[in-house]
C-alpha cells in the first residue's frame, strides 16, 4: 500500500529529529568546541546605540513618510479625518470606475460606510462569510482597502499583520491598494516596530507580517523601472487624524 501524505510527513519528521541532533553536533565539532546549549550573551543586539534616540515630531514624520512613499512611486496624503478618507476613496472609485472592492474586516473601514457611498460597486468584507474563495475575491478586486498596523516614516513603509479578519491577499492581489494610517500608528524608525514582535513572542505572532514600501516594481528588463509587476501598481497611503 502506498504511503499516505500523513505517513510521509511522520516519516520525514522522525528522520528530521534524528538529523537535527547530528547536524548541530557537527557544527559544534567543526567550531572545535562542545555544543552551546544555553542562550549565549549577545554582545550587540539591534541597531547602534546612537540610532535609538532618533525620533521625529509628528509633523516631521508625516512629511518624511509622504516624501519617501512618493519617491518610491506611491501616492501619499495627510487627511483631516475618516470623513476625508471616505470622500477620497469614493472619488477615486468613481474616477477609476472601480466595480469590485475588497476590504479588511476592521472597525475604521466599516465606519467609512462605503457600501452607501458606492451603491454600484460590489464591496466584500474579508472572511466575513464561509464557503467563499476569498483569495479569488481579492484577485478580481479593483481596490483593496486595509488599515495599517504600523507605519515607519524613515523608510516610507506600512506594516500589515494577518489574522482572521485581515487577509494577506487584500494588500497584494487587487490592482489598486489603499492603506489607511492613523497618525498614532506612524513611527519614525523600523526599530520602533520590529522589537514589538520579539515582545509579542512566538506564540502570539501572526502568520504574515508584511512591510510595504510603495507599488510593486521591477527593473529586470534593461533597467527600465516597471510598476505593478505582481502586486498592486497603484498604492495610496492615507495618513489621517484620529478623532
Amino acid at each position: 500500500m502506498a504511503e499516505t501524505h500523513q505517513e510521509l510527513l511522520q516519516r520525514l519528521e522522525a528522520a528530521s529529529k534524528t538529523r537535527q541532533q547530528a547536524f548541530m553536533d557537527e557544527i559544534a565539532g567543526k567550531l572545535n568546541r562542545p555544543r552551546v546549549l544555553s542562550k549565549p550573551v549577545q554582545p550587540f543586539r539591534g541597531a547602534p546605540e546612537f540610532w535609538l534616540d532618533f525620533n521625529w515630531t509628528l509633523e516631521e514624520k508625516i512629511e518624511q513618510f509622504i516624501n519617501n512613499y512618493k519617491a518610491a512611486g506611491g501616492h501619499a496624503f495627510h487627511l483631516s479625518g475618516l470623513d476625508e478618507v471616505r470622500s477620497f476613496i469614493v472619488s477615486k472609485a468613481n474616477e477609476m470606475s472601480a466595480a469590485y472592492i475588497v476590504r479588511q474586516d476592521q472597525e475604521e473601514l466599516a465606519s467609512l460606510a462605503l457600501e452607501e457611498a458606492l451603491p454600484e460597486a460590489s464591496i466584500r468584507v474579508w472572511n466575513s462569510e464561509e464557503d467563499v474563495n476569498w483569495k479569488a475575491k481579492a484577485a478580481e478586486a479593483d481596490f483593496g482597502i486595509v488599515r495599517a498596523d504600523y507605519a515607519a516614516a524613515y523608510t516610507g513603509s506600512v506594516t500589515v499583520l494577518s489574522d482572521k479578519t485581515k487577509g494577506r491577499s487584500v494588500s497584494l492581489l487587487p490592482t489598486v491598494l489603499f492603506v489607511l494610517i492613523p497618525e498614532s500608528r506612524l513611527k519614525t524608525r523600523l526599530g520602533e516596530i520590529l522589537p514589538d514582535f520579539d515582545t509579542m513572542g512566538r506564540e502570539n505572532l501572526p502568520a504574515g507580517i508584511h512591510f510595504i514600501s510603495g507599488p510593486s516594481r521591477s527593473a529586470d528588463i534593461e533597467n527600465d523601472l516597471t510598476i505593478g509587476v505582481h502586486g498592486p501598481g497603484v498604492v495610496y497611503a492615507l495618513i489621517y487624524k484620529e478623532s
Binding site: Y154, S157, G208, I209, R217
Partner: peptide
C-alpha cells in the same frame, strides 16, 4: 531604503 516588500512569515496559516 527598504525593498517594496519585506515579509516575515511565522508558520502556516492559522
Amino acid at each position: 531604503k527598504l525593498t517594496v516588500y519585506m515579509s516575515g512569515i511565522t508558520g502556516p496559516k492559522r
